[in-house]
């Protein structure tokens, strides 16, 4: 009974439909069963758990590194860590929230071990050649999507981990403040203030590392 109630104690948004909540409940029950079977020694059950969440973790890792080998390595390491700690998963949160937390920490540890890549883009002629700085902080419409992504990831790579993490979760993954709070184990108020500071820091680094994008006025 405790297992089911705990599995149901997930992030809910007051705007969620009944169908969405029902779907999440069903998923939570299935996850709980797969965890139980894995702990009982069923390898296939663990494989099914991995299959359920592998794409999302690959997408998460992609926000931190473009290297496909590194992405695969950190996601694999995340799942293996989750397997070793599976007996500590008490269904207080959803399985995805739990493994997302493990994956985020694993990725950040990996980046620390590897060492951050130096910013190259300041000397990147492709970027410097772009004309017309923008008003506000929006990228110039003439800059292609890939270049925007490149600039953004380079700026993010220079931010402290606590800021980078919340920006990735909010801006790329569109997680609610509650979900971010659940994953990081912090309050919603802290999420709000951390995001505020993270966005300010992002603006500062963007202006410093890519001065051609400096806005006309203070934002």
């Amino acid at each position: 009974m405790g297992l089911v109630m705990g599995a149901l104690a997930m992030t809910t948004n007051s705007n969620d439909s009944h169908e969405e909540r029902t779907s999440r409940s069903a998923q939570a029950r299935e996850d709980a069963l797969l965890v139980e079977e894995t702990l009982a020694g069923n390898q296939l059950s663990f494989q099914l758990l991995v299959e359920r969440y592998q794409e999302r973790l690959f997408a998460l890792a992609r926000h931190y590194t473009k290297n496909p080998v590194e992405i695969e390595d950190v996601v694999q390491e995340s799942f293996l860590k989750a397997f070793r700690r599976l007996d500590t998963f008490h269904h207080q949160s959803s399985f995805y929230t739990w493994i997302y937390r493990i994956a985020t920490n694993t990725i950040l540890d990996f980046l620390k071990r590897r060492g951050r890549s130096p910013i190259q883009s300041v000397e990147d002629p492709e970027v410097l050649a772009r004309p017309e700085p923008t008003d506000g902080f929006a990228p110039n419409v003439n800059i292609e999507r890939e270049e925007i992504a490149e600039v953004t990831h380079k700026v993010l790579a220079e931010l402290p981990d606590i800021f980078r993490t919340v920006l990735v979760m909010r801006e790329f993954e569109e997680r609610s403040y509650q979900e971010i709070a659940d994953v990081l184990g912090i309050s919603i108020g802290t999420v709000e203030s951390r995001l505020f500071r993270a966005r300010a820091r992002f603006r500062e680094r963007l202006t410093k590392d890519f001065p051609e994008f400096s806005p006309g006025g203070d934002a």
Partner: peptide, 17 residues
């Protein structure tokens, strides 16, 4: 200006498993 900043966060290309 806050809204404009969001345009920097374009969706990341999908990664195939």
């Amino acid at each position: 200006a806050h809204k404009a900043q969001r345009h920097w966060f374009v969706p990341t290309p999908e990664v195939s498993v």
